[in-house]
Simulated scan of single mutants.
Amino acid sequence: MSLTKKIDFALILKVTNANPNGDPLNGNRPRADFQGFGEMTDVCLKRKIRDRLQDGFQLLDESGKAHGEIIKESIFVQSDEKKTDGMTSLANRAKDKEVGLGADAFGKKANKDETAQKACEKWLDVRSFGQVFAFGKSDEGAGVSIAVRGPVTVQSAFSVEPVNITSTQITKSVSGEDPKEGKNKSSDTMGMKHRVDSGIYVAFGAMSPQLAERTGFSDTDADKIKAVLTKLFEGDASSARPEGSMQVLKLIWWEHNCKAGQYSSAKVHGSLKVNADGSYELNNFDGLVPTEIDGF
């Protein structure tokens, strides 16, 4: 059975001396807009959700505490660092008979609706976020494009105040390449590291029952997303994001009493005001009381 009620949610995140989302077109500096507000893109957040679903998690009870057995989900868009099936591309994963749907599902005579349904049944991220299966010409001489529109949307996270970005020049102790004649070290010895000194970020999202009917996204699937949102940065440490530098402070979860929703997402999201210290204020609506869950 698909999702029975509309859901809105908000994440309050804390960054301390870390690069939450580097911009490759700007020397991997933390993303920020022209006014200096920090940003974590929706693609970045969905990548972390996928990774946590793939790594393993426990569902939450009514009090927000993890309980039960460890669950690991099958994910289609796997990162290179976490891929478990050895597939070198999304096309290979989709067409492989063992881990995917097989080449026939994407062939010239394939039923696109049937293929989309099978993909949603197999991979949680496909039935959650949607996916475009756009592959080039096959052995049969025909390309394929199958679009699945997902019910779960996640907005980019923005800091509540402009962030201060510190850049530090670093030096490698060993050259990565052979130095040129007359030099002791190669040019790649010098580098830069960037970090956000401190910042509170807020991200919003929603789940649509109408779109969930098409992909088969269920109430249980929503509970799985809810569980991993509280531990978004566990197992995500790197030199740019050391352990403890990224934290989920709060997950705020609104469950409406019907598929259409009692209030618009814009109005629900606007009821949350987050302060620079991570505290927040909520303007509650009649008949729509949010669940407030501490981060992991």
Rank of each mutant, 00 (worst) to 15 (best):
L60V: 09
K46E: 10
L90M: 12
K46M: 08
R29T: 14
L101K: 00
G36R: 03
F37H: 13
E73C: 11
G38H: 00
G107A: 10
G107L: 02
S63K: 15
Q54A: 10
E39Y: 07
L45M: 14
D51R: 07
F106V: 03
R31F: 05
S89K: 03
K83R: 15
K65W: 03
R31V: 00
A103M: 06
D85K: 01
I49W: 04
R52L: 10
A110L: 11
G86R: 02
R52P: 02
G102K: 02
A105M: 06
D55G: 02
F37R: 10
K109E: 09
I70D: 07
R31L: 03
L60W: 03
A103S: 08
L53T: 01
G100W: 00
E62S: 13
K65R: 14
Q58G: 09
S74D: 14
D96N: 15
A94H: 04
R93M: 08
R52V: 05
D61S: 12
Q54L: 14
G68L: 12
A91P: 02
A66R: 15
D104L: 14
E81I: 07
G86H: 05
N28F: 10
L25H: 15
S79I: 08
L90R: 06
K95L: 07
N111E: 14
K82H: 11
Q54Y: 05
F76A: 07
K82Q: 08
K72D: 05
R31M: 06
N28I: 11
K108E: 04
G86S: 09
T84P: 00
V99Q: 04
T88G: 06
F76H: 06
D85P: 04
F57G: 03
R52C: 00
I49R: 01
E69G: 04
E73P: 00
C44G: 11
I75L: 00
D85H: 06
D104N: 15
V99S: 04
D104Y: 09
A103V: 03
V99N: 05
K82S: 13
L59Q: 04
L59N: 05
G56A: 09
S79G: 15
E98L: 12
F57I: 03
R29G: 05
K82C: 04
E39N: 13
G100D: 03
I49D: 02
G64Y: 05
R93V: 02
T84M: 13
G86L: 15
F34P: 02
T41Q: 07
I49H: 00
K72I: 08
Q35D: 11
I71W: 11
T41W: 05
Q54N: 13
D85F: 14
V43Q: 10
G86V: 07
R52Y: 04
N26H: 15
T84V: 15
V43D: 07
K65T: 13
E69H: 09
N26S: 11
D61I: 07
K72S: 15
G102S: 09
I49S: 01
L59V: 09
L25D: 15
E62G: 12
Q54R: 12
K108T: 04
G86D: 07
L59R: 08
L25A: 15
R52S: 06
G56D: 10
F57T: 01
G107T: 04
